[in-house]
């Protein structure tokens, strides 16, 4: 097995970027903010997956009309209240949104990264042992033993 497989390299890079996400989002021109009845939030396209953005926004549909655009490498999220919501409450929603964006992005990373092993797991679960792996590690004692040999 190689020391670093390709997706891991990619991930490590992404990780690094993500830890700096808050900072990136906070750049002047793309600063998350509240304007009237709307929340505006921005997420770097290189760091956030489309799936994460939509899965996150799904949970805001009960209170807001939501729109997403891509502009200049950023997802632009606009959440407009469906009913009257106080500014204080909107602030809390924004705070929650920022947190949720990161969480949903993390979730999306797990689900993409583990897709293969999950598929394998389910295939195995509904197979009859024909997909079983060879066990790991060695089994012999110093004298010498093999599970495939007949007599000890």
């Amino acid at each position: 097995m190689p020391k670093y497989s390709y997706p891991i390299m990619l991930l490590t890079l992404r990780m690094f970027l993500i830890t700096h996400t808050i900072h990136v989002i906070a750049k002047m021109e793309n600063q998350n903010h509240i304007e009237g009845n709307s929340i505006f939030a921005y997420a770097d396209e290189r760091l956030f997956s489309k799936e994460a953005i939509f899965k996150c926004l799904y949970w805001y549909g009960d209170h807001f009309h939501t729109t997403v655009n891509i502009n200049d490498g950023y997802y632009q999220l606009q959440l407009t209240t469906a009913q009257e919501i106080s500014r204080e409450e909107l602030k809390l929603f924004l705070q929650k949104l920022e947190r949720d964006l990161i969480d949903f992005n993390l979730r999306d990373m797990v689900s993409k990264e583990t897709q293969n092993v999950r598929d394998l797991l389910i295939a195995k679960a509904f197979s009859n042992g024909e997909l079983d792996e060879d066990p790991p590690g060695e089994i012999s004692d110093p004298v010498g033993f093999s599970v495939y040999e007949n007599k000890g």
Binding site: S5, V117, L121, I122, K124, A125, D132, E133, P135, P136
Partner: peptide, 18 residues
């Protein structure tokens, strides 16, 4: 490991749960 050593155990448990 990329494919965990005990994946067959996990698969059995998955089947049991369902």
């Amino acid at each position: 490991q990329e494919v965990p050593a005990l994946i067959d155990v996990l698969a059995t448990r998955y089947r049991t749960k369902k």
